[in-house]
Each structure stands twice: as C-alpha cells, then as structure tokens.
Design a protein around this nucleic acid. Structure first.
Lengths: 118, 118
DNA sequence: CAGTATCCTGTTAGATACTG
DNA sequence: CAGTATCTAACAGGATACTG
C-alpha cells in the first residue's frame, strides 16, 4: 500500500487516510497493546506480538512515530531503556481501535461457529 | 500483509483479523462506496476510485467477495451487467467504516491546519 | 460492459547474525 | 536491552493490450 501525502480526492479518502496509517502487518496490534497497557518497552511490546522480528518491530514503530501516532522516549542509561506509548494523536484513534477489535471479535466468533466447509 | 486463517492468539488479534480483511490499497474505499451507494456496477465503482486499474478493481472485489464482505450479482445479458453490494457481513462492518472515515476526516483537517514544516 | 492475460517493478517482511 | 546490517523470497500493484 503506497503511502500518500494528499488526500484531496474527496469522498472515500478519509477511509484511505486512516487505513494508510494502520498499514503494515503489525501496526494495528501495536496500537492496540499501547492503548491497553499505556507504556511499553521495546521488548515488552515484542513479547506481546508473537512472531515479530526485532527488525520488523523497529520498523513499524519508527513508522508509527513518524506519522505521529506513537511517542518514543529514550532513557540515557545502560542498559538501554526505551519506552513507547500513544501520542495524543494516537490516543485519538482509540475509538477506531475499539471498533476494529469489536468487529474482529464478532467475526472470529462467527467463523468459529460456522466453520468453512473443507 | 499475509492473510491468516487462525486468530487464536488472543488479545490483539481481533484487530488484526479486521485489518487483514481491509488490507489492499483499495478495499477500504470500495467498502465505503458500496456502503454509501448500496449497489454499484463494475465500472461505476471504478469511476469512484480514480486511478484504479481494471485488474486491481477485479482483484480487490474478488478478495472481498471471497471473505464474504461483498456480494456479486451477474445478470445473464449482453452487454454484461454485474452489480456489487455489501453482504450482510459487509453491512455489519458499517460502524467500522464510519469510524475510519470520521477519524480520517479529522486527521486530514489537522494536517491541513498544521502543515508539516519542510 | 466487465473483465483477462502478461509483463515488470518496488516494497514487504522473514531469517539470520551482529553490537554499544 | 534495544536495536543494526544483510540477504532473499514473495507479493502487491501499476502499465498495457486484448476479449466475449
């Protein structure tokens, strides 16, 4: 999904604008966990995302930071300590995250109830 | 974004489950327009998505159909007539689409108000 | 009208190894 | 602990041309 800067194409574009920010295999879940837990360190977050590599976690976090959804706080100490949390802008996404989570739960339940015929 | 079938990993996964279905550059907008207009023919839809190629439109629609969010109705006539609309499942996504659109509008407004310094 | 069929490119994301 | 650096396979998605 190519990132865009201009969403002047009216009608449907706000949807795209939002989705563009959530794009990437892990962004949605990352935001979900930061919303839930408030503040998490790099590896704490990583542990909540089973299967993610450090490289990917770093990349997704940097992108979220770049668009202003996530704040990154570095403590000048050894061993390193870096904390991630939602920015104000990220917090404003709360209702969206909730909507995604709520509908997803329903869908998972529906799929479980009516298993796709083999 | 790799499609998955199992979302048994608890906590954050409903978010992923939803996002997986909306993945692809055009799915969000397609759903938005079908929600708005109810039923649209292939090219009507295409015209609302400036820049999409027929190949992509077909592909995204097939994927949405496959996961059960969109219904495809073919009329046996010449010239061909094919109508797309939200399925019941797709309609149940309404609140999510609205949330995405609403937040996106806010964000676009915010970006316009505070243009990123070059 | 509503697609297919090909070709082609950049990007995504996984695996793996290394570091201040 | 919190990352980098490299390499690679797979795919997304655009361009273009053709068709029942």
């Amino acid at each position: 999904m190519t990132k865009r800067r201009d969403y002047s194409c009216a009608e449907g574009c706000p949807v795209e604008a939002t989705l563009d920010l959530l794009d990437g295999k892990w962004k949605g879940v990352i935001l979900f966990h930061l919303k839930r837990d408030g503040t998490l360190r790099f590896n704490e977050l990583g542990r909540r995302l089973r299967g993610i590599t450090q490289r990917m976690l770093t990349k997704q976090l940097r992108e979220l930071e770049e668009v202003g959804l996530v704040d990154r706080r570095v403590y000048a100490q050894v061993p390193p300590k870096v904390e991630y949390s939602l920015s104000d802008e990220g917090r404003s996404l709360g209702a969206v995250i909730d909507a995604l989570a709520a509908w997803g739960e329903g869908r998972i339940a529906r799929l479980a109830a009516a298993p796709k015929a083999a």
